[in-house]
């Protein structure tokens, strides 16, 4: 089955998208409102997988480097790039909510 990516940026105006409704697959109950997407949802699938692996590796860059077959600084750079992206998204979200 094709994996769908959760869109988080408006294709029309490039603003951050919000969740309007949630539905129960079992009984079709629908909850409607205006919910913010979790911060991590704004990352790409690859970045989310990296974070998951990082948590599973107890936050050890050395273990991550061994798992991925990459050098320690390469893995640290990947993590630092994700941190920077999260910080930028946080800042943008704060500015948008003002």
């Amino acid at each position: 089955m094709m994996q769908k990516n959760l869109p988080h940026i408006c294709p029309s105006c490039s603003s951050t998208l919000k969740v309007k409704s949630l539905v129960c697959e079992k009984c079709a109950t629908e909850v409607t409102g205006l919910f913010s997407l979790p911060l991590l949802a704004s990352l790409t699938q690859q970045e989310q997988d990296f974070i998951t692996d990082f948590v599973i590796s107890s936050g050890s860059l050395k273990i991550m480097a061994q798992k991925l077959g990459l050098s320690y600084p390469t893995v640290r750079n990947l993590l630092d790039d994700i941190i920077l992206k999260i910080e930028t998204n946080q800042k943008n979200n704060k500015t948008a909510s003002k």
């Binding site: 077959g69 990459l70 050098s71 320690y72 600084p73 390469t74």
Partner: peptide
Amino acid sequence: NPFIYIAG
């Protein structure tokens, strides 16, 4: 750029 794989 072998440093992607080897460093330290």
